[in-house]
């Protein structure tokens, strides 16, 4: 009898709480045969926050180089959950000798990704010396 009451209360709790945790997920449509062919590159990932990597999952990285030799990279992200995630990202650029290229524009950009959303973040190097990059993602601080 006691178990039934506990189960009933638990079920009621789930029902009451679920609207509060309401999630929304994005529907997407795109060309089945895209004309653009991205130049995908092999990447190396270091995951220290598995929860974030599930919500901000890196599908792949592609790159291009402008006429004047500026490297541009694009990271395709996919939120594999049904809830929105706020995060920040930053790109660091390195020259031929592996030295970091500092800039007064260095900043950690805040952004967000909706549940089920696919989004691309494209960044252009502001120096033609930039040959390598490092993308970092960090969960936004809770307010």
């Amino acid at each position: 009898m006691k178990t039934k009451i506990i189960l009933a209360i638990a079920a009621l709790g789930v029902v009451l709480l679920s609207p509060g945790c309401a999630t929304r997920s994005m529907n997407t449509v795109e060309a089945a045969q895209p004309e653009g062919i991205p130049n995908m590159i092999a990447d190396k990932r270091i995951i220290t926050d598995p929860s974030l990597s599930r919500k901000v999952y890196v599908v792949g990285v592609n790159e291009s180089v402008t006429e004047a030799g500026y490297k541009k990279i694009q990271v395709e992200l996919y939120n594999r959950t049904r809830s929105m995630k706020a995060f920040t990202y930053r790109v660091e650029w390195f020259d031929h000798e592996g030295m970091i290229i500092s800039s007064p524009l260095d900043n950690r950009t805040p952004t967000q990704i909706e549940g089920g959303q696919k989004r691309n973040i494209a960044v252009l190097a502001t120096s033609p010396k930039a040959v390598d990059f490092r993308f970092t993602f960090l969960e936004s601080l809770k307010r």
Binding site: E67, K72, N107, L124
Partner: peptide
């Protein structure tokens, strides 16, 4: 201050891509 850095960063990327990189 981080907003200025972010806005400047995006503006510079745009100028480089559309004007400087194309000559």
């Amino acid at each position: 201050i981080q907003d200025f850095a972010r806005a400047a960063d995006e503006m510079v990327q745009s100028i480089i891509e559309e004007c400087i990189s194309t000559g």
